[in-house]
Design a protein around this nucleic acid. Structure first.
Length: 205
DNA sequence: TTCAGGATGTACT
DNA sequence: GTACATCCTGAAC
């Protein structure tokens, strides 16, 4: 079923862990883009120096992290890429899970065109290997920008679900295997002092 | 396969 | 002015 507000309204690390293997669905101009989530990171404003909203810092950019759980937080990074997060915990607790990477499911045509400007059957092996393995790449393939910052994940434009049957696709048998969940330090937050060592990155295979 | 360096715009000091 | 929750390219190995 589609993930509900209750799913997001929990401890951020629990949400980050439980998002692994879930499906991220983006409906764009009547077309449906789907990927399976394989890597996430937790960010918790009340005590995490790596979080944009550390110590409840409230600015125009971080305002979205204070929104109700199940909201999309999308920001621009390094001047040219976007990152997608899902807001967690009760409204007013600025925290979110960064979606770092995934694998394509369903029709890859639009994903590939958004990402590389070409059809899937023209992708090089290098491009296939590096299709959705980074937060900026993932947003590019899903055509997500700040235009979608603040939208609800409980609607029809962008949402998550735990079975492909929920969107009239067939879940492949490999997606039904138990998840081998690993954890580690988060990527790209060397500035975050003691928080650099928090094991809040979750990934599979 | 790995690595250094550049691209690029916005938020915030 | 500085830093940034990144990605791509090209060179070296």
């Amino acid at each position: 079923m589609k993930l509900t507000r209750n799913f997001y309204d929990r401890d951020t690390c629990q949400v980050a862990r439980n998002l692994l293997g879930k499906y991220l669905v983006r409906v764009c101009n009547g077309l449906t883009l789907v990927l399976r989530i394989t890597e996430t990171e937790a960010y918790i404003g009340r005590m995490d120096k790596a979080c944009h909203a550390y110590n409840y810092r409230r600015t125009q950019r971080t305002e979205t992290m204070f929104a109700p759980p199940g909201t999309a937080y999308i920001y621009m990074i390094y001047g040219m890429h976007h990152c997608l997060n899902v807001v967690t915990e009760p409204e007013g607790e600025p925290s979110a899970v960064l979606i770092r990477s995934g694998q394509p499911r369903g029709d890859q045509d639009l994903l590939s065109r958004n990402r590389f400007g070409r059809a899937p059957d023209t992708m090089t092996p290098y491009q296939k290997k590096n299709f959705l393995n980074g937060p900026g790449k993932l947003c590019k393939a899903l055509a997500l920008t700040r235009a979608q910052d603040g939208i609800s994940l409980l609607g029809e434009e962008l949402f998550l679900c735990d079975r492909l049957e929920d969107i009239s696709l067939v879940t492949p048998s490999e997606d039904l295997l138990p998840l081998d969940i690993r954890t580690g330090k988060r990527i790209g937050i060397d500035y975050a002092e003691e928080a650099v060592d928090f094991p809040w990155r979750y990934y599979i295979e």
